[in-house]
Structure formats: C-alpha cells, structure tokens
C-alpha cells in the first residue's frame, strides 16, 4: 500500500513537470491573449511612479507603460502594474512575472549579460551626486572625508559610492536603508552628513522638504545612470516593440507632434517620415506586429516625450527636474530616434 502511494506521488510529480514546461511563445502573443500588459514599476517614487489616493498609479514611468499598452491595444488602461522593490525587480522579469520593467533601472553591462536582460535606449540620463546641508561647507567630494553617507541598499548608487571613495582614498561611514522613506526621514533628521543618489531623485525629494533651501546638491556628477526599460533575453520581437514605442515618444518631441496637434499634422503633413510615422502611408506598425496607426495612437492618447515628462517632472511640478542630456539631439541632447522608414 505504501509503495503504491510512493509510485503515485512520483508519477504525479513527473506529469506535472512534463506538462508544465515553460512555453517559449512570443511575449506579444501572450500579452494579447491575456488582454493586458504587466509592467513592473515602483510604487513609491515621487514624480516617477506612485499611487494616487484612489489607488491608481501615476508618474513619468507609468506613462511609458501606458504608451506601450496604447501601442499594443490602443488603450492606455490595459496595464496591470506590479509594484517592485529595487532588489526583486530583475528576478520578477527573469521569472516571467512581468512583461517589461520600467523602474529606474540603470543600464549596465553586468545587468545586460549576467541577468539576461535587454535594455532599451535610456529614457532618462541621470547621474549620481550628493545632497548636503548648505551650512556644512561641503563643496566637493573630497570634503566628504570621514562623513556618514546615507544610501539605498541594492542600488547602483551603493556600489558607485564605495568605488569612488576607494579611488580617492577617502574614509566614510555608509548608512544603508531599505526604503527611500526611511532614508529621507533619517537624512533630514540629521543622522547622515550626506545622501547620495541620482540627481533626479535628490532634486525630487529635497523639493518636497519644507526646508529645501537649506540643502544643496553638489556640482559633481560621479556616475552615469542611464535609466532604461528592460525585457528578457530571447524575444527580439517584443524588444523591438518596447524600443520603438520609446522612439515614437522621442520622434514626437523632435518633430513637434503633440497630442493636441497630431490630428492636424496627420491630415496635412507632407514630410514622408511623419507620414510613415503616423501611418498615413507605409504601414510600419505591421512590421512590429502592431496596428498601422500605433504611433499615432501613442501620441494621441499619451503624448510625446516632452508632454509626458512635463506632466510629472517638468517645470510645472514641484520637482522641476532639469532634463540635462535628456533632450532631443536637435537641441544638443541624447534623445535620438532612428528614422521611421
């Protein structure tokens, strides 16, 4: 009797593992069949991705997910957001729990290879710096010798910090935090002399603090932090869709096509690239597996890069983040879309 039970158990384990082999289907197909996109996002990064009072997600990175959903479904609401911490974000992508990761992930060689990810072109060019009290007299990184420096654990900032301090032979005491919220409270309560993070994040957080003018970000940028969307290795078609959706936002800004004037431009423009872009002729979308009007839908329902940026991070918001290199190449920046041909 006992033996029969064991055989049964073994058999059931085998059947489960045989029939439940991961399917190597295309992500686009899976997303279409499911009826919505699953995006891995942050839930508590002011301006970039956060929860509104009614429980819906909002922010610059959320708009990128909405743009992707619009490209696929022509409906910005067809996204399920999966809140992720900085530690688990890549695992969630590897295990297939999410389709795309849009969570202030820095594009690095190790992540691209070891973690088997494909990064898109960066959607924001960030860089690490330090926030200090104005009256501390700290002007350069060398002034931070012996300082207590607050940093988020699991971020590239933590590694960069130890690298640059070691390279300059400076001693420091790291104060590690799991969440931005704890770090903020500790830093503004004076538990650390400096706080290191990406400039955008420092600006965003400092601006919310009542005594924001008592703090200053150091001039020096000590690292390159290109923030990019990521997908899994092994599905190039899906990668193309994510990549070209971002290019569509770039091109929209470059050509001055906004959600307000896109209908007019579509009707009147003689520029062959714009005609191809908006699906007037050359159904470029079909080459990606999308509808011919996908880029028009994205611009119409979500907006171009500038619109999306200004909605949550731009001069009209309390953050007023300087775009730095994240402006179109025509204005001397790095946002460059290959031709839509």
């Amino acid at each position: 009797m006992k033996r029969i039970a064991w055989v049964l158990v073994l058999f059931s384990v085998l059947t489960v593992s045989v029939f439940a082999q991961p399917k190597q289907g295309s992500t686009l197909e899976a997303v279409r069949k499911r009826g919505y996109l699953i995006a891995g996002v942050n839930s508590s990064n002011a301006g970039w991705a956060y929860l509104k009072s009614n429980g819906s997600y909002e922010g610059f990175e959320i708009e990128l997910a909405k743009a992707l959903a619009t490209a696929i479904f022509n409906d910005p609401s067809k996204v399920q957001y999966r809140p992720l911490t900085s530690k688990e974000r890549f695992t969630a992508l590897q295990t297939g729990e999410i389709d795309v990761l849009i969570r202030t992930a820095t594009f690095t060689l190790t992540r691209d290879t070891d973690l088997a990810l494909n990064f898109t072109t960066p959607y924001f060019y960030d860089g690490q710096s330090f926030l200090v009290r104005k009256d501390s007299g700290v002007k350069t990184i060398d002034d931070l010798d012996g300082a207590t420096i607050a940093v988020l654990t699991g971020s590239t900032g933590e590694i960069t910090l130890s690298d640059i301090m070691a390279a300059r032979g400076l001693k420091y005491k790291p104060l590690l935090f799991e969440s931005l919220e704890e770090l903020k409270n500790a830093f503004f309560a004076g538990r650390a002399d400096a706080w290191t993070s990406d400039k955008s994040s420092l600006a965003a957080t400092a601006s919310s603090y009542p005594n924001a003018k008592d703090y200053v970000t150091l001039e020096a940028t000590v690292s390159k932090e290109p923030l990019a969307m990521a997908v899994r290795h092994g599905d190039d078609g899906w990668y193309d869709i994510v990549q070209w959706t971002l290019y569509a936002l770039f091109l929209g800004e470059e050509k001055g096509i906004t959600s307000a004037n896109v209908d007019k431009i579509k009707a009147s423009s003689k520029d062959p690239e714009i005609q191809a872009f908006l699906g007037v002729k050359d159904a470029l979308g079909q080459k990606l597996g999308l509808s011919p009007s996908w880029a028009y839908d994205v611009i119409k329902k979500v907006g171009n890069y500038e619109e999306v940026f200004n909605r949550y991070l731009g001069p009209g918001t309390i953050f007023n983040i300087t775009r730095g290199l994240s402006v179109p190449w025509t204005k001397g920046g790095l946002l460059y879309s290959p031709p839509f041909k």
């Binding site: 839930s43 508590s44 990064n45 002011a46 301006g47 956060y50 929860l51 509104k52 009072s53 999966r82 809140p83 992720l84 911490t85 530690k87 688990e88 969630a92 799991e178 969440s179 931005l180 919220e181 957080t205 919310s208 603090y209 918001t317 309390i318 953050f319």
Partner: peptide, 21 residues
C-alpha cells in the same frame, strides 16, 4: 520588502504622492 503594498508598503507609497510628501 518583497514589494507587497501592505499597510507599511502603502504608507511609503502615500508619502511619495507629491501632494502628501
């Protein structure tokens, strides 16, 4: 800490809203 928005997770999400920072 594994990304679930329980009462603690939701409290850090709330204070990330620019209105309630």
């Amino acid at each position: 800490i594994i990304g679930l928005l329980d009462m603690i997770g939701i409290s850090s999400a709330i204070v990330s809203n620019p209105e309630y920072m």
